[in-house]
Design a protein around this nucleic acid. Structure first.
Length: 205
DNA sequence: TAGGCCATCTGGTCCT
DNA sequence: AGGACCAGATGGCCTA
């Protein structure tokens, strides 16, 4: 059986394209499965840090991946202060080596942590996707942002709570509120232009 | 072109 | 000790 493998580090543009093309019916489980496969691969050879990751750690150092993997530590962009005490320099050197030496335990742990973090963000995003499906939207509205999803959900929950407390029929309750300009609502947390504009598209029955 | 949104990496902190 | 969670930094894409 052929094993599918999606290596984020080997092809950083591929995963971005994946997000950019995500559709509302996207299933997260296959991606989670791929990440799990990636986790299992950690016991074997690790791909080198992405250039982005290296750059973020050593923004001033002009180092290539080849430099990182095959040569002893050399700082080109940042010069060590000559006044630095010998033990301090040694400590700094140790810390830098941890990040630069391929297959160093630090790199292995960091890579595993990155994968876990990606997996965690995927689960958060899947929850956002589910929440979006419950929030009222315009028929052809573009995908809600995360912050808009949260704000609309808060307002919508407040409205549903009021409807429950009123004991009225939802549709007539909303119609009445719209007619009266929400004047009767003392606790109109949900009375935001964002939500009320969308309420006309809600099918209550 | 600036600003909004997002994914990713990272190191720190907390928890089990 | 290792994993989960979090926030900051960074860079890419998209849109007004």
């Amino acid at each position: 059986m052929e094993e599918m493998f999606f290596d984020f580090d080997q092809d950083p543009t591929a995963d971005f394209a994946f997000w950019g093309q995500m559709d509302p019916n996207f299933q997260f489980q296959p991606q989670l499965d791929n990440i799990l496969l990636d986790c299992h691969s950690l016991t074997g050879q690790l791909s080198p840090w992405s250039s982005f990751a290296c750059q973020s750690v050593f923004p001033d150092a002009q180092l290539t991946l080849t430099d990182l993997d095959s040569q002893p530590l050399q700082l080109e962009g940042a010069e060590l202060d000559s006044s630095l005490a010998a033990d301090e320099a040694h400590e700094l050197n140790n810390r830098l080596q941890c990040g630069l030496v391929p297959n160093h335990p630090y790199k292995v742990q960091r890579h595993a942590a990155n994968i876990r973090e990606r997996k965690r963000m995927l689960s958060i995003n899947s929850a956002f996707e589910e929440l979006r499906s419950y929030v009222p939207t315009f028929p052809y509205e573009k995908r809600l942002s995360k912050i808009d999803t949260l704000r609309l959900a808060i307002a919508y929950i407040a409205l549903l709570r009021e409807i429950l407390l009123s004991g009225c029929d939802p549709k007539s309750y909303v119609d009445e509120c719209m007619k009266n300009g929400y004047k009767n609502q003392t606790n109109a947390i949900w009375n935001t232009s964002d939500l009320t504009a969308r309420l006309s598209w809600v099918k209550w029955d």
